[in-house]
Amino acid sequence: MEETVVAMEEMGVDVVAAERESQTIEMSAKGVSVWFGKRKILENVNMDFPKKTVTALIGPSGCGKSTFIRTLNRLHELIPGAALAGEILYEGQDIYRQDVDPVHIRLAIGMVFQKPNPFPSMTIRGNVLSGLKLSGMKRPDHDALVEQTLTSAGLWKEVKDRLNAPAGDLSGGQQQRLVIARALAVNPHVLLMDEPCSALDPASTLRIEETIRELSKDITIIIVTHNMQQAVRVSDYTAFFLAEENQPGYVVEQGLTTEIFGNPRDQRTLDYVNGRFG
């Protein structure tokens, strides 16, 4: 797996910088277990997300990665029957404390979903600003905000002349970048991405990956992906999830992406990252 590290360096991933940043922890999960009704989905997940880094969550389908990511911004609790044990710390505070407003958490910790989901009844501009309307958040100078977030999402040049066109006119890849701009417009510190490229073609995927690298200079990103190469290309840290049949998922191994892919300690990790199962 020597090539992997080399590949990362070629992609411009600064491994040393990533390690240096790891001094400050933005978010962490402490002993997190998750249930839907009586079914246990996740078992005792402990994980730290250092500030301004990208963490990839990998593992076969049904091992609880998506469920885990949804506990990080309290979307999990909106599903009937959902339950949780343990703590999710954001800036050192448990986000599930009684006096915490979930709306504040969801604004600070944005999310991008698997399928591009712009609001079809709104324009491109309307979609970017929709978070302000939906949450009642006030931010000055909407024009500048639209330009800045669309630029960050790598979409500004393509849409700047048709901001009032319906969002449905855009291609799938453009829609996904629009959705990223929408998430950025409420100024989050963390961005959760649940397989953001799984519905996109390779060229669009590449654009999104560039966007992720660019965004990670300012915010912390946690991304679920089934694409091993993508995890190598975009992430500083990787966590490998696994679930035996009808058992809750757990974290087999986590650490620097270079370690997980280059020198895994667990045989199952080695097998998975080399495509021998899953």
Partner: peptide, 27 residues
């Protein structure tokens, strides 16, 4: 109402009222 749109609204910190007004009713 497509669940992915409701998800999007929830992830943007909607209230029940704003979700209805901007997502479910227009749809």
């Amino acid at each position: 109402t497509p669940p992915e749109l409701v998800n999007a609204a929830e992830s943007l910190g909607c209230s029940m009222f704003t979700m209805l007004r901007y997502v479910a009713l227009p749809f």
